[in-house]
Simulated assay, not measured.
Amino acid sequence: MSRSILQYGPSTANELAKRLNLTPAAIRRHLTVLIDLGHLTSREQRVYGHRGRGRPARVFALTDAGRAEFFQAYDELAIHALSYLQQVAGEEAVQEFARQVVAGVEHRFDAIRGEYSSRTEALVEALTAKGFVASLQPVASGVQLCQYHCPVAHVAAEFPELCEAETRAFSQMLDSHVQRLATIAHGDGVCTTHVPKPVHPPTQSTDEGKAVR
């Protein structure tokens, strides 16, 4: 349930029930537990324009404590390990480690590529399966690949090689030049990568190549 709210934002009980295919009673039990743990908070849903009878529905959102549950418990240990690796084996060893971290997404992408109509859709599924909670947002110049969670955000803040390796892997998997616009590791709310529309070569004119007289 918390992951659904992380991915889709503050949600009502009805929205959660539909997404998770649970009964209202089950949803209420889960919500009560998460609120008691301090992982969720609730407020009245904002209604714009004319409001019907009755009180507005309540929406449930993650607290800072709820978000913290999604971060790895061993971030500090990982940072110390990478620092040691950098000292004894050099920067190239850290870069190779970063490539190995991304390899899990690449393997998943390769396994499911044929099941999707586009490379970007396959990459979204591969990222989400690995805990990155991804989606696509269309823009005029292409699409933005959004990652709402980063399991290695705290480590990547100390070792940007992880983000750099991920960006290179995206470019290879999508066979496209991509541009990283924002990262959770650097304090942004969402990791955002711009994937431009494919550039098709212009159709050659039938008169092209004829000598000018």
Rank of each mutant, 00 (worst) to 15 (best):
A57R: 15
Q137D: 11
A89V: 05
G66R: 00
L82I: 03
E125R: 15
A126D: 00
F97S: 09
I79C: 07
S83W: 06
A122F: 03
A111W: 07
R113V: 10
E69W: 08
D64N: 12
G131I: 00
R55K: 14
L127H: 04
V105Q: 06
G54C: 01
R58D: 03
E76R: 15
L123S: 02
L85H: 02
A122Q: 05
I112C: 04
A78W: 07
Q87M: 06
A61C: 04
I112Y: 03
L123T: 02
S83L: 13
E106P: 05
F109Y: 08
V88Y: 03
Q87T: 11
K130I: 00
A68C: 06
R113F: 04
A93Q: 10
Q100G: 08
R55L: 09
R53T: 11
L136V: 00
H80M: 13
Q72N: 14
T120A: 13
R67D: 05
L77K: 12
L127R: 10
A78T: 11
S83E: 10
A78K: 13
A126W: 00
F71Q: 13
L82K: 06
S118L: 07
V133P: 00
D110K: 12
G54A: 05
A129H: 05
F71K: 09
F132Y: 14
A68H: 12
F71M: 11
L123R: 02
R58W: 03
S83M: 08
R113S: 07
E121T: 03
L123V: 04
Q100D: 08
Y84E: 10
Q86G: 08
Q87V: 03
V102M: 15
G66F: 00
A103K: 13
Q86M: 09
